[in-house]
């Protein structure tokens, strides 16, 4: 069995409204484009990035640091794609939640 190293990225939640439902959905949809296992960790909580319910239960607010962990064949690409969403502040229109 092939062993894939875990890739981790520290990211900051920088949009004003934090990881709310629409952002959670955006992350879950992106995660589903990859075969790798993708987790978002905040403190002691870890969420499966494919589950909106899981992601929302993190309670990730503006200014919070989270860690993305990816393991699998396309782990590098997955980590980059998720990081891109964070860095783009989830393309948020701050007026709509």
């Amino acid at each position: 069995m092939t062993h894939f190293p875990k890739i981790t990225r520290e990211l900051l939640v920088s949009n004003r409204c934090g990881i709310h439902l629409r952002v959670g959905n955006m992350l879950a949809q992106k995660a589903k484009e990859f075969s790798s296992d993708i987790r978002i960790r905040k403190g002691t909580y870890a969420a499966d990035c494919r589950s909106v319910l899981d992601i929302l239960s993190l309670g990730a607010f503006q200014g919070d640091a989270v860690v993305i962990e990816t393991v699998g064949e396309d782990a590098q690409q997955a980590a980059e794609a998720i990081a891109e969403l964070f860095n783009a502040r989830f393309y948020e229109d701050e007026q709509v939640q």
């Binding site: 709310h20 319910l53 239960s57 990730a60």
Partner: peptide, 16 residues
């Protein structure tokens, strides 16, 4: 917006 997010966090944590 923080109150909304805290409510979502509580709802989803419990419903898990």
């Amino acid at each position: 917006p923080g109150d909304h997010l805290r409510a979502l966090e509580h709802i989803t944590r419990q419903l898990k």
